[in-house]
Design a protein around this nucleic acid. Sequence first.
DNA 1: ATCTAAATGTAATAATGTTGCATTTATATT
DNA 2: AATATAAATGCAACATTATTACATTTAGAT
Lengths: 149, 149
Amino acid sequence: MAQTKNFRFEELLDKHHLKKTGARLRVLSMMYSKNTATSQPDLESVMSDIDRVTLYRILNVFEEKGIIHKVFDLNGTANYAVCHADCGENHHHDEHLHFNCTNCKNVYCLDDLHMPRLNLPEGFKADSFTLYASGLCPKCSKKSAATIN
Amino acid sequence: MAQTKNFRFEELLDKHHLKKTGARLRVLSMMYSKNTATSQPDLESVMSDIDRVTLYRILNVFEEKGIIHKVFDLNGTANYAVCHADCGENHHHDEHLHFNCTNCKNVYCLDDLHMPRLNLPEGFKADSFTLYASGLCPKCSKKSAATIN
DNA sequence: ATCTAAATGTAATAATGTTGCATTTATATT
DNA sequence: AATATAAATGCAACATTATTACATTTAGAT
Ligand SMILES: [Mn+2]
Ligand SMILES: [Mn+2]
Ligand SMILES: [Zn+2]
Ligand SMILES: [Zn+2]
């Protein structure tokens, strides 16, 4: 168990009364190292030495604890992203925009832009909102512009 | 092929150069008879005499033709709803709110409320938006209110 | 009535997710 | 440092959702 600089993740696991295992630390460091969500298939192939079931269980506890949240992309594939809001045990507050790039398929959590509260039709009582957008992400829109020129 | 009052659906199939088959007409009449989306599992159990593969193929052409659109609910289950916008062959414009009731699990397409165009961070080029909300639908919020009193 | 492209059925396979149970391991306690 | 134990993992089996290839049937045209 390489004692690198994942003190941060060890603390995180501690805080949530989860044992510090290699698999969990690897999942955390992979997800925290990116600025996009990670798809279940990606996780599974990168962590191919970890048992599939274990991976599902890790993702599930992390989600329950409010460490990560699950997003389905345009194809219905499960993606996981770290929570930046004040999420906790069974209390998620990830009301932000999920941008799904149609080219690279990456899902971006765009936290900073606040949800526009709109008034629903009579009778509907919403307790959470999520906005989805699809199109080109900065990298891909730059590339496509370059191709045209 | 009971010559009932599904002239409407026969016309619709005609318009899209699709053959009028019993299976297609049944799928259309089921989906048009409801004001909520229909989940794939529901469709499959109701239409259990139709082969699963056929059902998938029907749903896929209908989606391609712009007759229906696919929505994933909070659990990642595929739901299908009729298009009310001017959708056509590979041109969907279903930019509306999808309300997923946490109690009855139904997905409502709330068409009338217009998407608030918001400005994304530098570089992101969105070409479509969808808003998701979850909470209680009118029926379920009425029921839960009744239970409390 | 005949013909044919389109639609359906069937079987096989893949991908994703869950459950039950045996084994191992992180950590608390002695 | 050894031990005890709940937590975590691995493994096998299974369930659900989805796709592909190919044989057969059928709607609609001639
Ligand atoms: Mn997110
Ligand atoms: Mn819709
Ligand atoms: Zn991209
Ligand atoms: Zn409801």
